[in-house]
Design a protein around this nucleic acid. Sequence first.
DNA 1: TGTACATCAGTGAACGCGCGTTCACTGATGTAC
DNA 2: TGTACATCAGTGAACGCGCGTTCACTGATGTAC
Lengths: 218, 218
Amino acid sequence: MNSRAARTHQALISAGCDLLLERPIDAIPIDDVVAAAGVAKGSFFNHFADKQAFAQAIVNQIRVELESWIAEANADVSDPLIRFVQGMEISVEFALSDRKRAEVMLRAAPRTTAKDHPLNVRVNGDLGVLVASGVFRPEAEHNGLIFWLGLCQSLTRDILERRLERDIAAHKVREMLILSLSGFGVEPAHVTELAHYGEHAIRDGIFQKIVLEKKRGQ
Amino acid sequence: MNSRAARTHQALISAGCDLLLERPIDAIPIDDVVAAAGVAKGSFFNHFADKQAFAQAIVNQIRVELESWIAEANADVSDPLIRFVQGMEISVEFALSDRKRAEVMLRAAPRTTAKDHPLNVRVNGDLGVLVASGVFRPEAEHNGLIFWLGLCQSLTRDILERRLERDIAAHKVREMLILSLSGFGVEPAHVTELAHYGEHAIRDGIFQKIVLEKKRGQ
DNA sequence: TGTACATCAGTGAACGCGCGTTCACTGATGTAC
DNA sequence: TGTACATCAGTGAACGCGCGTTCACTGATGTAC
């Protein structure tokens, strides 16, 4: 795809993303998309088979980005518990530094609880290790994923809905980590340490670089 | 409203509910609704101003039902912790005995985390009492609601998505209660007791009567 | 580097149909006497 | 209880417009020589 085509393609995706913030895809006429993107109506069909494929493409692009962020943040981390916790932190960073995309993704693809969903398979593996090694209590083995995903999603939604500041969000991450890691049965001293670390990771924006780099790179 | 009108009204709502299981409201032509309800197209507009009002009416009816179930189950319960836990159990019972409505509600109205949402205000009050009395750890005060709602919703979604049997769901409730109540800081012996009670409440369907009574009463 | 040609994306007017909404008419239900 | 009338919901054909999709044409980009 040459650069002109790439520009048009991205303009449509971006415009679609903006519009998806306000209303569902079925309530968005293609006229509105092309007007916002500044291209002719016919161009839309050079790039997407139909409106559904368009919506799919938008959500896919976001999902792939999020996956790549998580992969990058966890690239050189060997402790499964740190990887586990960083998943929450990346999600929160996503909500803070790329609000529009985060909101569109949360709305369009309510996170499935399936263990074999691409976003979950890594998390679930780490969870198994943590139970096997006795860091997490045995009850976490089968339902830990549902537990964890539910509260990560709830936390992210709260940050997005209430447009929370970074500092407030950081504090919230600390408390959520205390509640959830205690629930998993992690030893209290370790919980405090991880929660403290998590709060500062968000407050200091240590994952911000990852998110913004990828955002610019497109 | 006379009985003929009431019948038509309910036929439309029921048909709409069935169709909402498969696709979003914008993808459902009114022709399909009236065909499924067995009434003429014009009747639709005797009852609803437009399609959006129709969707709203469906979700409202479900929300009111769920609220009344929770109110009924908690009517003569004075212990805030029991009320709290029973909220999860009613949600699960809802998913088990009235799958269609539960699924439509979960899809249409992703539960907000707002403290003043009608469904949340009672829960949040109980939470405050539990923190003040030292049953829950202090970190639960501001973020306990998000934590709790997130995992209740995640649990319900899992049961609906995977069409879980009652026994499996009951076991899941037990484990989720262990994880979450431990997270809140409830004393271990009490956690075990509540989780055990919760599992049997679902397995024996003690809230089923409430749900089915209201369902039939309409 | 310049020219000629092929390819590929962009353009926007036109089409047409799906679907929301209306409305004049019919038939049922409720009420007055 | 029966009759006459008013009210109210049901009916479905007809309308019309919003919007998805097409297409013939234009202009830009890339390539061969």
